[in-house]
Design a protein around this nucleic acid. Structure first.
Length: 890
RNA sequence: GGUCGAGUGGCGCAGCGGGAGCGCAGGUGCCUUACAAGCACAAGGCCGGGGGUUCAAAUCCCUCCUCGACCACCA
C-alpha cells in the first residue's frame, strides 16, 4: 500500500479545542436527558485499561464502539454516562516496576514491601494518566470528572467487603493445592492466565527396578517428558485393565537416584496405549499425578523451591534449576544403564502470560473461591435472555465457560494489589477476615499480622460495574445504583469473556441483590494484523492507533475501524479503510463548505421539500435514518458506516448538491433559492447528527458554523438524533422514480460522450422517448439534466423518434438518444448493444423458465411470483426495444 | 480431541433463501470554482470442491479441502 499522505491541516489542535468545549459544557457528566427517553439512564462502564498500558488497536476499536453507543444515546435524550477508570493490573505493573528498579540496580527484596508499593504508586502517578489521555484524544465522551481506579480507597473497601462476605459464607477457603506457579514472578497464576506454547521435546524412557523381580521382570519402563521430576515420584501407575501389568499392581519399585521404594498401582487415568503404559507419578509437580496420588493416598514430595530449583536433600541435584536437573538426571540414568531410550515428542507447555516463563505445577497453600454457589445464577440470567450477547453465538461460549468452571485460585504472591484481608494471631492462633484493618488480636490482644498475598486482579475487576457507582458504602441504596444500575452495554474483546464478563455477572448477582450488571454484551472482533496474525510486539506486525490518528484524524480512524466490524471473531486490519474514511470525512467537510458558501441571504424556516429533488433526498434520508437505527439496535457497526457512507457520498454529494447548484446560482428564483438553502441546511444537519457518534469532531466543527434555529442545542453532542418516525412522512416513491429517471438520462449522455472520447464540455442534443407518466416526471427536470448532463437541448416524448446520427441508450422504460452528428461508430454501437442483448436474453430466459415452473407458481409466495412476472415483462420490453434499436442500425 | 469463525472480482470485505455489491488497486477521460484525499465513464466474479433439502441456494443441511481462533489433553 502507498505511504499514507499527511493531513493537510492539523487535526489534533482542532480536535483538542472541540474536546475542551464538550468538557466545559458538562456533557461528559451524566446528562439530564430530554424527550421521550428523558427519564431513562444509559450507562456504560469502560473495560478499565491497565495503568501500564498504552492505547492499542483493541482499545481503539472498543472505545469507538462504546463512544458511538453513548453519543447516540445522549442525542436520543437518555441520561447518559460513560464511566472511565484504570486497573492497577497486579502482575503487569509489578513486573514493570521490578524492571525499572532493576535498571537502577535495585532489587524489590532489598527495599521491602512498603517501599516497593510506594514505587508502584509512583508509577501509577507517572504513567496511569497516559492511556486516559489517549482515550481523550480519540474523542471519547467519558465522564472524566469522576474517574476511578481499582485501588482507590472506596474500591479497596469494596473488594474487602466482598472477600469478607464470601469468606463468612464459606465461598472462600484456603487449601493446599497444586497450582500453576511462575518461578520468575514467584506467584501462582490462574488456569485461565496460563498460555500454552507448543514445543518440540522428548519422551525419555526410564527404567525403574522392581524391589523384587516378578516372573523374571526386573524393571518397569516409564515414559516421561519431564525426567527431572522423578526425584519427587511417589508411585507408578498402570491402567487397571492392562493385562501386561495386572500382576504387578501392589508390588514396589525402587526409585533410582533416590532409593525410595514406591508402589505400583492402578488408575483409570492411565492410557495403556501411550508410552509403555506405565506412568511415573509425581503428585507435587503434575495436576493429574496430584489427582491420582490423592486417590491412591500417595505421599506428596515437593522437590522444587519457589524459583524451581531443586531443594536440599537430593545430593548433587540440589540447587540445580529445572533444566540443569533434567540434564543431570538423564545423564545419571544413562550412567546407571537405566535410560531405555529417547524419542522425539512435541508437547505444549504452560507459560506465564506475563513473563512467558514456563510454569511449574507446584504445591502450595492458596486461597480459592468455590464457584459452584455462584455460577448457576450467572448462567440463568444469560439463559433466560436478561443478558444478551452480540453476536448471539457468544451466549454458548459463555455458558460453556461457566459449566466447566473450577474453583478459582485468587491468591497471588505479589506485593502490588489488594492485600488479602485475612489476619492471623501467632500468639493464640486466632484468625479471621476483616473489612477494617486490624492491629491487635480481638482474642488475646497480641499484635496480628495480615496475610502476605494479594488478590488476583480479576477479583477486583469483577466489582467494576458497581464498585464505581457508590456500592461500597450504601450498596443498592447508593443514588447511582438506584438510578442507573444495571448498566446498558458492555463492550469487550472475546478473550476476557470468562475471566471478566462472567465474573462480573457472578459478582453482581451476589452483591447487588440478584441484579445483572449490564443488559447487552458486545463482543467485538479481535483486530488482527494485515497478515492475519495477532498483533504483537515480537512479530512486529502491530499498528499504533496514535499514528493512525495522526495520519487520518481521530474521526477517520474511528469510522475506518467501525467499517471493518463484522460478526466474525477476527477482523484483519485494513488501513486502506481508514484512508477511505479520512477521505470521507474530508468529503463531509467539503460538502459543508459548499452549503456554507451558499447561504447568503439565508432565512431560517421549516424545511419543506418543494422540487422532486428535494422530495427525493428527504425520502432517501427517511429510509437511511431507519436503516441506521436498525443497525445500531442490532449492534451492526459495519452496516451503520456503509449506510452513511453511500448516502452521504453517493446520494447527497454526488446528486443532491449538484442538483442544488442551479437553484442557488445568481438569477435563480429567490423563493426556490431560499427553499433550497433551508433544505440543504436541514439535510446536512441530519447527516451531521447521523455521523456524529462515529465522527464526533468534524461534525461538531461544522455544526458550529451552520445556522441554527432558535432553541437548538448549543452543541451537536446534545442535539437531537434524527427521528425516523417523524421523517417517515417524507417517503416518496414518485420522487424517487423521477430522480432515477434523471440519473439514467444523465448517465446515458455522459456514457455516450465518454465512449466517443468527446470532451466533457461538448454539449449534446438529447431526445428521450418515455411513456407519458415517466415523461411527465422528467419534463420539469430539464434544467437538472441540462446542468449535470451538459445537454444542449432536451426533448421528451412518448413517440419521440430517434434522430439521425444519434446513439441510443435503452433503459428501464425509456430510451435516450444522444446526438453525435458524424461521430457514430455503427459497428461499435452494434457490438455494445449485442453484448447487452446477450445479458438480457439470458435474464429473460431464466425468468421464463422460472415462471413456467409449476412448482414455483404453486408454492412460491404470491408477491414473489408477481414481482418476477413484473421483472420479466420489464426485461422483455427492454429487450424488444433494444432489438428494435439494433435493427435500426441496419 | 471438542467448540467456533472464515473461504465471494487482483487485494480487503459486505450480503446469508427469490435480481452478485462496497472499498482499495488497476484502465480511460477530466484542474467541470465544495472537494484531484476529487469528478465522470468503463472493465473485472461457474460466490473453495462434492452431495443434499427446496418451486428456488452465495445464502439452509451433510461431507471434504484450506486457513484461523478458543477450550481440553498431552506420563
Amino acid at each position: 500500500m502507498a505511504e499514507p499522505k499527511k493531513p493537510v491541516d492539523d487535526f489534533a489542535a482542532r480536535e483538542r479545542a472541540l474536546f475542551e468545549a464538550w468538557r466545559e459544557g458538562g456533557y461528559f457528566q451524566r446528562t439530564p436527558g430530554f424527550g421521550e427517553h428523558a427519564a431513562e439512564p444509559y450507562t456504560i462502564v469502560i473495560p478499565p485499561p491497565n495503568i501500564t498500558g498504552v492505547l492499542h488497536m483493541g482499545h481503539a476499536l472498543n472505545d469507538t464502539i462504546q463512544d458511538a453507543c453513548v453519543r447516540r444515546a445522549r442525542m436520543r435524550g437518555y441520561q447518559t454516562r460513560w464511566v472511565i477508570g484504570t486497573d492497577h493490573a497486579g502482575i503487569s505493573t509489578q513486573t514493570k516496576v521490578d524492571k525499572r528498579l532493576a535498571d537502577q540496580g535495585i532489587s524489590r527484596l532489598e527495599i521491602g514491601r512498603e517501599a516497593f508499593v510506594e514505587e508502584c504508586y509512583k508509577w501509577y502517578e507517572e504513567y496511569g494518566t497516559t492511556i486516559v489521555n489517549q482515550v481523550k484524544g480519540m474523542g471519547c465522551s467519558c465522564d472524566y470528572s469522576d474517574e476511578h481506579f481499582t485501588l482507590e480507597p472506596a474500591y479497596v473497601r469494596a473488594v474487602r467487603k466482598l472477600f469478607v462476605d464470601w469468606y463468612e459464607h464459606g465461598l472462600i477457603y484456603r487449601g493446599k493445592r497444586i497450582v500453576n506457579w511462575c518461578p520468575s514472578c514467584t506467584t501462582a497464576i490462574a488456569d485461565d492466565e496460563a498460555e500454552y506454547v507448543d514445543e518440540p521435546g522428548h519422551l525419555w524412557y526410564l527404567r525403574y527396578p522392581l524391589v523384587e523381580p516378578v516372573d523374571g521382570i526386573e524393571h518397569l519402563v516409564v515414559a516421561t517428558t519431564r525426567p527431572e521430576t522423578m526425584l519427587g515420584d511417589t508411585g507408578v501407575a498402570v491402567n487397571p485393565k492392562d493385562e501386561r501389568f495386572g500382576h504387578l499392581v501392589g508390588k514396589k519399585v525402587r526409585l533410582p537416584l533416590v532409593g525410595r521404594e514406591i508402589p505400583i498401582f492402578a488408575d483409570w487415568h492411565v492410557d495403556a496405549e501411550f508410552g509403555t503404559g506405565c506412568v511415573k507419578v509425581t503428585p507435587s509437580h503434575d495436576p493429574n499425578d496430584w489427582a491420582m496420588g490423592e486417590k491412591a493416598g500417595l505421599p506428596r514430595i515437593n522437590i522444587f523451591d519457589e524459583t524451581a530449583h531443586v531443594v536440599e536433600g537430593y545430593g548433587k541435584f540440589s540447587g540445580m534449576d529445572r533444566d540443569e536437573a533434567r540434564e543431570a538426571v538423564v545423564a545419571a540414568f544413562e550412567e546407571l544403564g537405566l535410560l531405555d531410550h529417547v524419542e522425539d515428542h512435541d508437547h505444549s507447555v504452560m507459560t506465564c502470560y506475563r513473563c512467558h516463563t514456563k510454569l511449574e505445577p507446584w504445591e502450595s497453600e492458596q486461597w480459592f473461591v468455590a464457584v459452584d454457589g455462584l455460577k448457576e445464577a450467572a448462567a440463568r440470567v444469560v439463559e433466560d435472555g436478561s443478558i444478551q450477547f452480540h453476536p448471539a453465538r457468544w451466549k454458548q461460549v459463555y455458558l460453556d465457560w461457566l459449566a466447566n468452571l473450577k474453583d478459582w485460585c485468587i491468591s497471588r504472591q505479589l506485593w502490588w494489589g489488594h492485600r488479602i484481608p485475612m489476619y492471623y494471631c501467632d500468639e493464640c492462633g486466632w484468625e479471621d477476615a476483616s473489612v477494617d484493618e486490624i492491629e491487635v488480636c480481638p482474642a488475646c490482644g497480641a499484635p496480628v499480622r495480615q496475610d502476605d498475598d494479594v488478590l488476583d486482579t480479576w477479583f477486583s475487576s469483577q466489582l467494576w460495574p458497581f464498585a464505581t457507582m457508590g456500592w461500597t458504602e450504601e450498596g443498592m441504596d447508593a443514588p447511582q445504583m438506584r438510578a442507573a444500575y444495571p448498566t446498558q452495554v458492555l463492550s469487550t474483546a472475546r478473550d476476557i469473556m470468562g475471566l471478566w464478563v462472567a465474573r462480573m455477572v457472578m459478582a453482581s448477582m451476589y452483591c447487588c441483590d440478584n441484579t445483572i450488571p449490564f443488559e447487552d454484551v458486545i463482543i467485538h472482533p479481535t483486530v488482527m494484523a494485515a497478515d492475519g496474525k495477532p498483533m504483537s510486539k515480537s512479530r512486529g506486525n502491530g499498528v499504533d492507533p496514535l499514528r493512525l490518528m495522526e495520519d487520518y484524524g481521530a474521526d477517520g480512524m474511528r469510522f475506518g475501524l467501525l467499517m471493518q466490524v463484522t460478526g466474525a471473531q477476527d477482523m484483519k486490519f485494513n488501513e486502506a479503510k481508514l484512508e477511505s474514511s479520512r477521505n470521507f470525512a474530508n468529503k463531509v467537510k467539503n460538502a459543508s463548505r459548499f452549503v456554507l458558501m451558499n447561504l447568503e441571504g439565508y432565512e431560517p424556516g421549516a424545511p419543506e421539500p418543494v422540487t422532486p429533488a428535494d422530495r427525493w433526498i428527504f425520502s432517501r434520508l427517511a429510509k437511511v435514518v431507519a436503516a441506521v437505527d436498525a443497525a445500531y439496535d442490532n449492534f451492526e457497526f459495519g452496516e451503520i458506516t456503509r449506510e452513511l457512507y453511500s448516502f452521504v457520498w453517493n446520494e447527497f454529494c454526488d446528486w443532491y448538491i449538484e442538483f442544488s447548484k442551479a437553484r442557488l446560482a445568481e438569477g435563480a428564483d429567490p423563493a426556490d433559492r431560499a427553499a433550497c438553502q433551508r433544505n440543504l441546511v436541514f439535510v446536512l444537519g441530519q447527516v451531521l447528527r447521523l455521523l456524529h457518534p462515529i465522527m464526533p469532531f468534524i461534525t461538531e466543527e461544522v455544526y458550529g458554523e451552520l445556522p441554527r434555529e432558535e432553541g437548538a442545542a448549543p452543541m451537536l453532542i446534545v442535539a437531537s438524533w434524527p427521528d425516523a418516525q417523524a421523517l417517515a412522512r417524507f417517503a416518496d416513491d414518485e420522487a424517487e422514480r423521477a430522480i432515477e429517471l434523471v440519473c439514467e438520462v444523465v448517465g446515458a449522455v455522459r456514457s455516450a460522450r465518454s465512449r466517443y472520447g468527446l470532451s466533457p464540455r461538448t454539449e449534446l442534443d438529447v431526445v428521450v422517448k418515455a411513456p407519458a407518466a415517466d415523461g411527465a416526471l422528467l419534463e420539469g427536470q430539464a434544467p437538472l439534466i441540462a446542468k449535470l448532463g451538459r445537454t444542449a437541448s432536451l426533448a421528451v416524448g412518448a413517440d419521440a423518434a430517434k434522430p439521425a446520427g444519434s446513439v441510443a441508450h435503452v433503459g428501464a422504460g425509456l430510451e435516450v438518444y444522444v446526438g453525435l452528428a458524424g461521430h457514430v461508430d455503427l459497428s461499435a454501437e452494434r457490438a455494445r448493444m449485442e453484448k447487452e442483448r446477450g445479458k438480457l436474453e439470458a435474464d429473460v430466459a431464466k425468468l421464463d423458465k422460472k415462471l413456467s415452473n409449476e412448482g414455483f407458481l404453486a408454492k412460491a409466495a404470491p408477491e414473489v411470483v408477481a414481482k418476477d412476472r413484473g421483472r420479466r415483462d420489464e426485461l422483455a420490453d427492454k429487450l424488444a426495444r433494444l432489438n428494435a434499436q439494433i435493427a435500426e442500425l441496419g
